[in-house]
């Protein structure tokens, strides 16, 4: 099976134009994009992504404007490539769960990833996603018991996001044997690819991730590269990570 890989960008970072360009560019190398809707209190994020989100917020972020850029990219991108939102529960509750899902569907978003909505709180949102034929992405972690992993993996749609480390985005990738075993277990039960996120930043970590899982998501390293303002830096890192 060929790897199924994704990349993460902070919505409208470093600005509207560069973000849109990077989203297009990234989709040439990766199978899906994770688009972060900036939130003031990003508890799952390390300093690089949190600082980027903060910069976007200070510049007067509007979700409506981000919807526009996403719609533009969607219209020109390969229809097999998927676009996911990644944001925090309050953003969704604020816009109203139903309204949030409907607006997202309209601009061509394929699914949502919400790190502070665990499996036990996901019912209502999952139902809404189903109704609108969008993927609700589940997380699995080394802390989950085997039973939980089986249950979560069996219910997975789109892909299963395996958070391989205890920490925030941008932390170092360290996978112990027990975690490797749990990733394997998730793969057995998941009807969709099991993807490792958090800590994937270079060739070495990509190799490690692909030994363990069906694919990876790279975030912090790419956000940092794009933060230099040079598309070339971003593109060459995309190439390096995907081996193209």
């Amino acid at each position: 099976m060929t790897a199924y890989n994704g990349f993460y960008l902070v919505g409208n970072y470093p600005d509207f134009e560069l973000f849109t360009e990077a989203l297009r560019e990234g989709l040439r190398y990766f199978d899906f994009a994770e688009i972060g809707i900036p939130f003031s209190d990003p508890v799952a994020d390390g300093p690089v992504i949190a600082t980027a989100a903060d910069a976007v917020l200070k510049a007067g972020f509007k979700w409506e404007k981000l919807l526009e850029s996403v719609q533009k990219v969607r219209q020109s991108a390969d229809s097999h490539k998927k676009l996911y939102w990644m944001s925090y529960a309050n953003i969704l509750y604020h816009h109203g769960l139903q309204n949030f899902i409907e607006r997202s569907k309209e601009v061509g978003i394929d699914g949502i990833i919400v790190p502070d909505i665990p499996f036990v709180e996901s019912e209502e949102l999952k139902k809404l996603c189903h109704q609108h034929r969008m993927d609700y992405i589940h997380f699995a972690t080394p802390e989950n018991t085997d039973e939980q992993i089986k249950r979560i993996a069996s219910a997975a749609q789109g892909f299963l996001y395996f958070v391989s480390i205890r920490g925030v985005t941008g932390s170092r990738l360290l996978v112990d044997d027990e975690t490797a075993r749990k990733i394997q277990l998730a793969k057995e039960y998941s009807p969709v690819p099991v993807i490792l996120g958090f800590g994937i930043r270079d060739k070495k970590t990509v190799e490690r991730a692909l030994q363990l899982a069906d694919g990876f998501i790279a975030g912090t390293a790419l956000v940092k590269a794009l933060g230099t303002g040079e598309m070339d830096n971003f593109t060459s890192l995309c190439k390096q990570l995907t081996g193209n």
Binding site: V43, A44, P118, E121, F139, T141, R166
Partner: peptide, 21 residues
């Protein structure tokens, strides 16, 4: 049982913390 007082409460945290809770 899920930690709600009427419409409020719950456990909106990373999956990593659910078992600790």
């Amino acid at each position: 049982r899920k930690g709600y007082f009427g419409n409020y409460g719950g456990r909106f945290v990373a999956e990593t913390l659910i078992n600790a809770l």
